[in-house]
């Protein structure tokens, strides 16, 4: 069927051509050169032809898949539903009867005054934009609902698709303008990450120097002093806190894995001392890091600062406290810090 539609019947074309042909010419038209003949018929032997017809017949006879059927069914239905019967050919006898009763198009029902009737014909009846409902001129549409989607889901989905499409268009528009901006942003991000790393390095230096100083003191005094977190200067307190938190989490995880699937803090009232010993719970293995649970507004405030500021502060702290220049990587003997070119990294370039 379909092949016939695509290929215009060759015979008729040839008829047309032949009028211009020179009858007296002794040359025979080579069918293979005829541009109107399609490939399938070009130089087709009877065997080939039979094969082609067989293949076509097979294609026709192949049972259609469910999806194909459904699509075809719907296409037919939609085609029929969108075709008004009033204009279809041949004219229906029903319409002729209605014409006899005075039907002249438009809607049915009580005759309205002329003016209104005209209005109504413009307005294509139905649930209308106009204030009054006009009688309908079209049958109610058939909408077939598949599945159990709730009311509004369909339109919500359509809305989302529309919005997505709009957003995509918007993005495409913006993309050009953003190209330069993108490079700038990447540069800024890389810079921020570098500053952050330097800040952490500065903290580590501060801690190392502080510990060295303390050890010197201890050796002199011979006592051990533990320091609460809050006693650590804010510039490198974050480092210690983060480390301790990581350590606590590791410990808790370990305890949990060991602790017979109970939270380590769980106290069983029925367990006596012996049970506890037997279960290896003689000691409470969990040490609550009370310090860590406390809020530290000072640190939070500090952490909220941009990385360059935090780096500046830790550098300044090192200089003032230990006469150490982060950039020279050198601890100067006095506060004049002779030989150091300045506060900032650029100064050391």
């Amino acid at each position: 069927m379909s092949t016939l539609k695509h290929n215009p019947p060759p015979s008729s074309k040839k008829d047309g051509d032949s009028e211009e042909d020179d009858y007296m010419s002794m040359t025979f038209a080579d069918p293979s050169l005829d541009p109107t003949a399609t490939s399938s018929q070009k130089g087709e032997t009877s065997l080939q032809r039979r094969l082609r017809l067989k293949r076509e017949a097979e294609a026709r006879a192949r049972p259609k898949s469910k999806a194909e059927l459904a699509a075809e069914e719907e296409a037919r239905r939609e085609a029929a539903l969108s075709q008004s019967l009033l204009t279809s050919q041949p004219k229906s006898k029903g319409l002729a009867m209605m014409a006899k009763m005075g039907f002249k198009g438009g809607a049915l029902g009580k005759q309205q005054p002329q003016q209104e009737q005209e209005q109504q014909q413009d307005g294509d009846g139905g649930e209308g934009k106009s204030k009054r409902q006009w009688p309908r001129t079209e049958p109610i549409r058939i909408e077939i609902k598949d599945g159990r989607e709730g009311i509004g889901l369909e339109s919500e989905r359509k809305r989302k698709i529309r919005e997505a499409a709009e957003a995509a268009g918007e993005r495409a528009k913006r993309a050009k303008a953003e190209e330069g901006e993108y490079r700038e942003r990447m540069r800024r991000e890389r810079e921020a990450a570098r500053l952050e790393r330097q800040f952490v390095a500065g903290q580590k230096v501060a801690e190392r120097i502080a510990l060295e100083k303390e050890e010197e003191k201890e050796e002199r005094k011979g006592t051990t002093a533990s320091r609460p977190l809050k006693a650590i200067p804010v510039v490198w307190r974050g480092l210690v806190r983060a480390r301790e938190e990581a350590e606590r989490d590791r410990r808790m995880r370990y305890d949990l894995e060991q602790g017979l699937s109970r939270l380590p803090t769980y106290e069983d009232a029925e367990e006596d001392e012996d049970d506890r010993k037997a279960l290896g719970k003689a000691r409470t293995t969990y040490v609550a890091a009370e310090d860590l649970d406390e809020e530290d507004p000072e640190l939070e405030e500090f952490n909220a600062l941009p990385p360059e500021e935090r780096l500046r502060r830790v550098v300044t702290y090192l200089r003032e406290e230990y006469h150490y220049c982060f950039w020279c990587k050198f601890e100067y003997p006095d506060e004049k810090m002779e030989g150091c070119p300045g506060l900032t990294e650029e100064d050391h370039d």
């Binding site: 008004s84 009763m101 438009g106 049915l108 049958p139």
Partner: peptide, 22 residues
Amino acid sequence: QDLVHFDLMDPPAPETMMRALE
């Protein structure tokens, strides 16, 4: 007699009437 102008509250679509007559 006159089905076309029969005074219904909501007259049906003309095609429905046409089909019925047919």
